[in-house]
Amino acid sequence: MLELRDVVATYGAVRALDGVSLSVTDGAITAVLGANGAGKTTLLRTVNGLVRPASGSIKYAGRDLVAAPVEQVVTFGLAHVPEGRGVITELTVEENLRLGGLWRGNRKESADSLGTVYEMFPPLADRRTQPADTLSGGERQMLAIGRALMSRPTLLLLDEPSLGLAPRVTAQIMATLRRLSREQGMTVVLVEQNARSALSVADVAVVLNLGRIVAQGNADELAADEKLRHAYLGF
């Protein structure tokens, strides 16, 4: 279980996270929603260690994430799909994927994972030797998710996967996440500004505003709460 307690993160004088406590249920999809600047991305970056909280604790499966070096977090079973996809455009599709599995140092497992990812995302298999910068936005998102899966994570963190994608492609990505959660029991934390599509796949959701959690609960209930939707979710 991923557990955040009273996490405060600051950029200079700005409190990006102002005492966030959150328990992420194993095997479920948790959507983190809110407007621009609500602290969603900062929340993810404190979990993977790119931003160190000023105070508070973050633990995953009993391990202290606040003290762990960024390079080590992947060995705890966390995989991160960065905002703007974060594929390394200078490397080929396959090199990007192989990179995701390197930390295990097990060629056979890597080869197996590679096969699984290509099965899950056939367009990537067709372009395995192409540099990643020749991919479309949707393919890049597939590549970023596929690369994260190469590390065989138990917890998948995604930062705005729908950003800049056509609705149809977004729907595909969301369906993939649902499958990972249902079929493999993967825990997914989905940061999204596109609340409507995030709520369509999420089990639970939290809403952030100005660095604080203003609402949390079942995704269906939040989606049905008209006041909340108007105030924070924009639909």
């Binding site: 080590q72 992947v74 390394i88």
Partner: peptide, 14 residues
């Protein structure tokens, strides 16, 4: 990977 995108490389355990 480290040269092209240090942050992503670190997240992948490099």
């Amino acid at each position: 990977a480290s040269a092209f995108n240090p942050e992503v490389a670190r997240l992948l355990g490099v």
